[in-house]
Amino acid sequence: MAGKKVLIVYAHQEPRSFNGSLKKVAVEELSQQGCTVTVSDLYAMNFEPRATRNDIAGALSNPDFFSYGVEVYEACKKQLLTSDIVEEQKKVQDADLVIFQFPLFWFSVPAILKGWMDRVLCQGFAFDLPGFYDSGFLKGKRALLSITTGGEAQKYTAAGGSGDFRYLLWPLQHGTLHFCGFEVLAPQISFAPETASEEERKGMVASWAQRLKTIWKEEPIPCTSPWYFE
């Protein structure tokens, strides 16, 4: 889809990792389609994950009692957020599709990616109260989680030791992405690449590349609790 813009938020320390391969093939495939692809390589950027008062470039609205949410909201309205946050927000604002590429850490995202979500998707930019879920400020944009796991697929079933994988997706897909207004595409899950054979790993990468060929034709998942829990 020539003219489309994609942001890949990538969280892995090693460029030659399996996550790195998935990121690389996504850049190649989407670029071949004529998309403009931007990558935020969080570890390479040394992205600051901590949400602190340093995120506000101007004076605090209440210097006597620091409330991060209140101060960032006011700074966002006054265009006084620090440059690293603003740069990432501009990438999100420009994107038609945001892909998050990361390994599953403790049933969630790596700390550096959680910090990106905490700092970048702030009130005033990604949502307001009211102004969330279907009214979130990022409505009209699409988002997709591309995740690698340590465990094999059978462990992430209702009968498996880790439970149905969809349970794990509720906080990220619904509580974060849908809350901000994103239309959420079905996740891309690559199970246990570290213990897979070389042929199996190549198959996972090829499957991701093949899916990306028709990614713009996909319908978002229904962002309702039955998709996750029934």
Rank of each mutant, 00 (worst) to 15 (best):
P171D: 05
A153T: 03
T157L: 02
L104G: 00
S135Y: 06
F125I: 07
M117D: 05
L145Q: 11
G136F: 00
S135T: 11
P110D: 04
F100H: 14
I147Q: 04
G163E: 02
M117T: 11
F132C: 13
A159R: 09
C122K: 06
F127I: 05
D96C: 12
F165W: 13
P130E: 10
L138Y: 05
L121P: 03
S135D: 15
G181Y: 02
K139H: 09
G163R: 05
A95G: 13
Q101N: 11
L97V: 08
V98M: 08
S108H: 10
L121W: 13
A159D: 10
L129A: 11
A126P: 12
G160H: 01
I147D: 07
A158P: 03
L172D: 01
A95P: 14
A158F: 03
C180R: 00
K155P: 00
R166C: 01
S162F: 04
E152A: 12
M117V: 14
E194M: 13
K141A: 06
P187M: 06
A186L: 04
L177P: 08
D118P: 12
D94N: 15
I147M: 13
Y167R: 13
W170N: 09
F127T: 09
Q123I: 06
W116S: 02
K139W: 00
S135F: 02
P110T: 09
Q123A: 13
T148Y: 02
I99W: 02
Y156F: 14
F127K: 01
P187E: 08
